[in-house]
Simulated assay, not measured.
Amino acid sequence: MTFRLSRRTAVPLSTVAVLSLALTACGGGTTKESTAGDATAAPSSSTSAAADPNAPLKEGLKIAYLPKQLNNPYTDVEVGGGKVAVGELKGEYKLVGPNDASASSQVSYINTLIQQQQDVIVVAANDPNAVCPSLNQARKAGIKVVTFDSDAAKTCRDAFINQATTQGIGESLVKMASELAGGSGEIAVLSATPNATNQNSWIEVMKTELAKPANAKLKLVKIAYGNDDDQKSFTEAQGLLQTYPNLKVIVSPTTVGIAAASRYVSSSNYKGKVAITGLGLPNQMRKFVKDGTVKKFALWNPADIGYLAAYAGGALASGQITGAEGEKFKAGKLGDYTVGASGEIVLGPPTEFTAANIDQFDF
Rank of each mutant, 00 (worst) to 15 (best):
M1Q: 13
L5Q: 14
L5P: 13
T9Y: 04
A10P: 03
V18R: 14
A22V: 05
C26K: 15
G29S: 01
T30Y: 06
T31E: 15
K32P: 01
G37T: 10
D38W: 05
T40C: 06
T40V: 11
T40I: 12
S48E: 13
A51Q: 08
D52I: 00
D52C: 01
N54M: 13
A64N: 05
Y65K: 10
P67Y: 03
P67S: 11
P73R: 06
V77M: 07
V79W: 10
G87S: 13
G87H: 09
L89H: 00
E92M: 08
V96N: 14
N99I: 09
D100V: 13
S102A: 12
S104C: 01
S104T: 12
S108M: 09
Y109C: 04
L113W: 08
V122R: 04
V123I: 14
A124N: 10
D127F: 02
P128H: 02
P128F: 08
S134V: 08
S134H: 09
L135H: 00
R139K: 07
A152Y: 09
A153D: 12
K154L: 05
K154F: 09
C156W: 10
I161P: 00
T166H: 12
T166Y: 15
Q167V: 11
I169G: 10
L180R: 08
G183A: 03
G185Q: 07
E186H: 06
V189S: 01
L190T: 13
P194W: 05
A196Y: 08
N198C: 11
A211I: 02
A211K: 14
A214C: 06
V221C: 07
N227P: 06
N227F: 01
S233Q: 09
S233T: 12
T235L: 15
L241R: 00
L241E: 06
Q242G: 02
Q242L: 04
T243W: 03
Y244D: 03
P245N: 07
P245E: 04
L247M: 02
L247W: 01
K248C: 03
K248R: 00
S252R: 07
T255I: 05
V256N: 15
V256W: 06
A259D: 12
A259S: 13
S262T: 01
S262G: 07
S266L: 01
S268E: 04
N269Y: 03
Y270M: 14
K271E: 02
K271M: 07
V274N: 06
V274M: 02
L279K: 15
G280V: 02
P282V: 04
M285K: 09
R286W: 11
K287Y: 03
K287C: 08
V294E: 13
L308A: 02
G313W: 06
S318A: 12
G319S: 11
A324K: 15
L334M: 02
D336F: 08
S342V: 11
G348I: 05
T351H: 14
F361M: 04
F363W: 14
